[in-house]
Amino acid sequence: MIELLSLGTFSLPKIADRNNEDALLVPVKKASGYLFAIADGVGSYDGAGLASKAAIDTLNSLNPEVWDDDDSSPFIFQEIKRQISSLSVIDAHYSKAATTLTFCHVGKGRLRIGHIGDCRAYYRDGGRLKQITEDHTQHQRLLDEGLYKPSELKTLGGKNHLYSAISRSIDLVFQAYTIPLSKLCGEDRTIDIVIMSDGAYAAWDHRPRFSLGTMVDPNRFTSGLLRRITRLTPSDDHSIIAVKLEDRLENIGN
């Protein structure tokens, strides 16, 4: 049985009083576990904020049974795409509306992730965060193809260019991960999972560490990161969900 122990979160626009095109789903009980997610509207196109909100609303409204079915990711993403496509019926300007989405469902002895775009899911391993998802960005693809080294990409444009997102106008290319909780649990049977949008991890990447006391506490972690983002000046809308869960069933079993 999965228990939610602690939660830290924020979702803020790049500039105060401007629209925030990120949308988030704080942990909610779905089937055997907890579901949480961040969607980041693709900023160059009209309806970006509506698309991210539609993704989160659809995710939250699906039949709870889908969350225990690890083969349901194609259905989930198709459903969200259908909702985003329907935005263009409201207004033709939204025909290119697009969003990224990363969701995590922790239950049934595993962490399940559905991912499209450039939000990131991490888990805590001791005093470090380890990235689970792969960015669907032009830069990541250039690295994968061996065309550029990370140091060479620093001066290259196109950092924020995505090759995949949920949109009426492009094919769905998503990734689904299933990781046994036994691989993620600390000695105390707790699991720390973090999802960040690009505006948040831009500041995290700046210096990817906090003290161990901050790393193990989702509230201190999010507060520390928000202070850092404010100090560095936000590069984009910035959202984070940091959760600490306990795998109690495993605990009892041991």
């Binding site: 980041d40 693709v42 900023g43 160059s44 196109y45 290119k96 697009a98 450039d118 032009q138 693809r141 250039l142 193809e145 065309l147 550029y148 290259l156 444009g157 196109g158 950092k159 924020n160 260019h161 995505l162 090759y163 997102a165 949109s167 492009i170 690009d198 590069s235 984009d236």
Partner: peptide
Amino acid sequence: KERESELITKMMDDGMGTPYFMSPEAKMGI
């Protein structure tokens, strides 16, 4: 101009040009 718009998240453009004369990265829009 590319530098000016770098911070806008957008979908990648397909590479434009004549394939035979295009470098591998140009085919990916770089």
